[in-house]
C-alpha cells in the first residue's frame, strides 16, 4: 500500500482536495498537524510520499512559504534528507513548492538539498490571481509524477509565483539536466511563453514546476488538485458540446503516476 503524509495547519488549506486526489488513485493518506511532525519527525519514515500542500502557511507573512521553509530546513531537515535518500517522493504544490524552493530542497542541484539557489517572488502583475494556464511538460524530464503526460491545463492561484534563479548558471543547469518539468505555454501553439497572462507571473524560462535530479522531488505552482473531476474544467460545458469532455480530471494522472511509482519501486 502506498502511504501518503499530508502536513496541515498554520494556514495550509488544500488538505481536502489533496487527500481526495491521492485516495482516488488508491493511496492510504494521513493528515498530520505540522507541530506534531516537528515534535516527532521520524513519523515521516512510515510514509513513501510527503505531500506539501497549497495554502497560506503562516499567512505568507515575511514571504510566501518562508517560515514553513525554515521548518523544513531546520526542524525536520535531517528527516527530509533521509526521506529523499531513501528513494521516496515529495510532492509540493503552490505554497508547498514555495517552501521546497526556499528551504533549498528544490532543485537540489548536485545533491545539495539545503542551499537555496532559486526563489518564488511577487507576480509581475503585483497581485494574487486565479486563472487556468496551459502547461507544457518536458518530455525529457525524468520526473516520476508527469510520466505519460504531454500537457496540462490547471489553475494557478498565487501572488508570489514568479520563479527566479540566483544566477544564470542555475538556469543553465536546470535546462541541461532537464529539471524544468512544467512550463507556462501558449494556448494554441503549446510553446513556452513569457507573455501575460499565459505566463501568469513572469517566471523566467516560463518555469511553472521543477524536480530534482532523481525526478522524485517535484514542485509546481499550478494546482493539479483543482482538476480531479472533468467538471472542474472552467469550460467543461463547451467541451461537452464539442464532444471532448474527458473521462477524468486532467490532474489525476499526476497522483496515479506517483502511487504507481511507489507500488513498483518502494513496496
Amino acid at each position: 500500500m502506498c502511504r501518503v503524509l499530508v502536513p496541515v495547519g498554520y494556514g495550509l488549506n488544500c488538505d481536502d482536495e489533496t487527500i481526495y486526489a491521492f485516495k482516488m488513485v488508491g493511496a492510504d493518506v494521513k493528515k498530520i498537524f505540522l507541530k506534531d511532525l516537528i515534535k516527532d519527525p521520524q513519523r515521516l519514515d512510515d510514509y513513501q510520499i510527503l505531500a506539501m500542500i497549497g495554502g497560506f502557511s503562516y499567512g505568507d507573512h515575511i514571504a510566501a512559504g518562508k517560515v514553513l521553509a525554515n521548518i523544513y530546513k531546520y526542524e525536520i531537515g535531517e528527516t527530509i534528507q533521509r526521506f529523499i535518500s531513501d528513494g521516496k517522493l515529495i510532492f509540493g504544490e503552490c505554497n508547498g513548492f514555495q517552501a521546497l524552493v526556499k528551504a533549498g530542497i528544490l532543485p537540489g542541484l548536485n545533491g545539495d538539498y539545503h542551499t537555496q539557489c532559486a526563489t518564488l517572488t511577487y507576480n509581475d502583475s503585483g497581485v494574487f490571481e486565479d486563472r487556468w494556464v496551459k502547461l507544457k511538460i518536458n518530455p525529457k524530464s525524468n520526473c516520476v509524477f508527469t510520466k505519460n503526460i504531454e500537457e496540462l491545463y490547471l489553475p494557478v492561484r498565487h501572488g508570489e509565483g514568479k520563479f527566479i534563479v540566483e544566477k544564470k548558471a542555475v538556469l543553465e543547469k536546470l535546462k541541461e539536466k532537464n529539471l524544468i518539468v512544467l512550463q507556462y505555454a501558449d494556448m494554441e501553439t503549446l510553446k513556452p511563453t513569457m507573455k501575460y497572462p499565459q505566463n501568469p507571473n513572469g517566471s523566467i524560462g516560463s518555469i511553472a514546476g521543477i524536480c530534482d535530479c532523481t525526478g522524485r522531488v517535484f514542485g509546481k505552482m499550478p494546482h493539479a488538485t483543482a482538476y480531479l473531476s472533468p467538471y472542474n474544467h472552467p469550460s467543461w460545458t463547451r467541451l461537452k458540446v464539442e464532444g471532448s469532455l474527458p473521462k477524468e480530471g486532467g490532474g489525476v494522472q499526476i497522483f496515479r503516476n506517483a502511487v504507481e511509482y511507489v507500488k513498483n519501486n518502494l513496496t
Binding site: C14, D16, D130, R157
Partner: peptide, 20 residues
C-alpha cells in the same frame, strides 16, 4: 484576485466562456 476554486469543488465558476 479571489480564489475561486480552493477545495476543488467548483463546477460552474464565476467566470465562464471561451476565454473564461
Amino acid at each position: 484576485q479571489y480564489d475561486h476554486e480552493v477545495k476543488g469543488l467548483s463546477i460552474i465558476k464565476l467566470l465562464v466562456g471561451k476565454e473564461e
